[in-house]
Amino acid sequence: MAKKPDNKRRDFLQLSTVTLGAVGTAAFIWPFLKSMSPAEDTLAAGSTEVDISTIEEGQSITIKWRGKPVFIKKRTKQEIDAAKMVQASDLRDPQDDAERVQKEEWLVLVGVCTHLGCVPLGQKISDMKGEYDGWYCPCHGSHYDTSGRIRKGPAPKNLDVPPYSFLNDTTIKIG
């Protein structure tokens, strides 16, 4: 028996055993990790239809979609103008107002602050609306403008726009 080839065989056996063991362990752990991801019924959370015929100009409603609050606001002329006047390049998360709405007067937003997930104030007349007259997050002081874009404070991103479509003039389908 020559020593060299023997050692090589030993190395090969050791390496393949360890590899197989590692792959096997990973394959065993995967289902456990995956079981913590959202379940099928959670993923299958459907869409919501909202009647918007009763919303007056300047008014805003909150509905629940996939467990999250969604803001639907009928903006006033001044609010639309204020949102349009801003240069996108000056913003932290640059976006034109036109990219964020389908119809100018209707603004639809996921009402979850992009900082740490609180619900911003600004839906009620009596609420604080922040320095840019949109929404203000009370948790850590983020200010959003009339297009739901982040203007001041710790949040990194604009308020999300959920996927939605107008079924007719008075109904929005969210999701």
Binding site: S37, P38, V112, L116, G117
Partner: peptide, 27 residues
């Protein structure tokens, strides 16, 4: 719980997915 689990979403690229995995839901 919302604020603390959202801390993980600050991690670039994997943050959002990691948060969803920890919560087992989108919120």
């Amino acid at each position: 719980a919302t604020v603390i689990t959202n801390l993980f979403s600050a991690i670039p690229i994997i943050g959002e997915g990691l948060k969803t995995w920890l919560l087992g839901d989108y919120n």
